[in-house]
Design a protein around this nucleic acid. Structure first.
Lengths: 256, 256
DNA sequence: CGCGAGCTTGATGCCGATCAATGCATGTGG
DNA sequence: CCACATGCATTGATCGGCATCAAGCTCGCG
């Protein structure tokens, strides 16, 4: 049915009894994403200094772009609520979804290299992000060793993730790609307290297809096939995973 | 015919014929790759401090691995001479070449996130690398702002590069992929002083195919097709580009 | 209620995979 | 020096998975 609400603070240790109604002021120290986001593993002291970094929040209505390829790069963005896609496009207009981002994940790392964004970030539902002024982040990570360490890890993991997508695009067949996609998505949602078996997709078949290097019809057919085989229950964008093991087998087994 | 020697001849390092016990002293400050590698844009002062970072050099004979997925991560490696491939593999044995690295390029960024390497790095010809102890790099980039900045840029560019590969794997056809590959390769070689039109491939058809998400036969056929069309001259691994514009047109034009 | 965006499903065709044979360069041992 | 093995590349024939083209279908929304 509808996506179950996350068991809110899976991680509220002590310090959070303050009032819930923060205006536009963002604060890592009271954020319940702090175990998923930039602040992982920081002390309270460090968290308070991190708070100075997160100047503002910004809301991005569904369908709007947070930034576009070519935009000046000034800030990173941490997804607070909502859901994004990032996509690159070639000169001739082909485009490729390079990722889907959910709460606690960082957007904009692509811009650091050239001081310009190289992809578009589009909200797939009404979303809010924390704005992280990049120069301040660099400055602060100069002072806080742990921040530097975490930030490097985040970038490195993004590279590793990209390699995984390359493997998927380069060597998997349609069913394997979709299975891998669903497992990845639900695993990440699960970390955020959502059900491991019920998902509401935030993206269209076409966007999934673009990410997986398939056409939307192939995505649709593969969903139907999984449903026929009793692996999934598919109702438009509502997906229920009935046989997680079957998906895992698909991903891990060679060309059967 | 044969690949022309770069104008600034490979460094004067007479490769020691002695055993590999004692480390060769490496030094960024006298390295002629310093405009391509980690030291870009550093002052002489900073370069000297960088020298303290590069503890050792290491030679990697053709076919040997520099590191493997699962290895403990301790160091990054800067390619000094030679040529590498990196590849990831899935549990069922499929593997995917994720990149080819030449002089001045960094290897090992994937290991930062989890303190373990996630891919194999294999020398495709006899190579030498500078060993960059990662903790020391983190420490030093704490002190040298410029080093931190450059390092972040390098990681970011790697992410952007990966996105480009995703676009290629997700939406291009065989000819476009090979054309993009050749243009990228020659462009990088050109930056290093080699000819823009004559390349000697360091990798097999199979490795190219793995990188591009194609089978080796398809790579071979596509080379032959380009040759028939007068775009390339192909003699095994010796490639001469006769019509660079034709390649560019292939990459930039939609499904003609 | 009807429109339209997004999804499903079918029919057909093509690109690249697969299977298989041959060619070519390099190396090794007799 | 040749005979042979080996690894890599080329080329042909055939096959299959996914793209493409083309209808319908569903559901949310003005």
């Amino acid at each position: 049915m509808t996506q179950t609400v996350p068991p809110t603070p899976a991680l509220d240790t002590a310090v959070s009894p303050t009032l819930r109604l923060e205006p536009l002021k963002a604060a890592c120290s009271t954020c319940n994403l702090r175990e998923l986001c930039l602040p992982v593993g920081m002390s309270n002291d460090q968290l308070e200094r991190l708070d100075t970094l997160i100047a503002t929040r910004r809301t991005v209505p569904r369908g709007e772009t947070l930034f576009r390829a070519g935009d000046n790069f000034l800030s990173l963005f941490a997804v607070r609520t909502g859901f994004f896609k990032t996509c690159v496009s070639s000169e001739d207009g082909r485009d490729q979804v390079t990722g889907f981002q959910m709460s606690g994940e960082l957007l904009g790392l692509d811009g650091i290299g050239t001081d310009r964004h190289t992809c578009d970030a589009v909200a797939l539902e009404d979303s809010t992000v924390c704005v992280i002024h990049y120069q301040q982040l660099e400055h602060l990570s100069h002072e806080i060793t742990d921040l530097q360490r975490v930030f490097h890890k985040i970038m490195s993991r993004e590279i590793v993730r990209d390699h995984g997508v390359m493997l998927l695009l380069g060597s998997m067949r349609a069913e394997e790609r979709l299975a891998a996609f669903l497992l990845n998505l639900t695993q990440r949602l699960h970390m955020r307290g959502y059900s491991q078996s019920a998902v509401i997709l935030r993206m269209t078949r076409e966007e999934i297809g673009s990410y997986l290097g398939l056409k939307l019809e192939t995505v649709s057919r593969t969903f139907s096939k999984f449903q026929d085989e009793g692996i999934l229950e598919v109702k438009q964008r509502q997906i229920r995973i009935l046989e997680q093991d079957a998906l895992k087998r698909l991903v891990n087994s060679a060309t059967c």
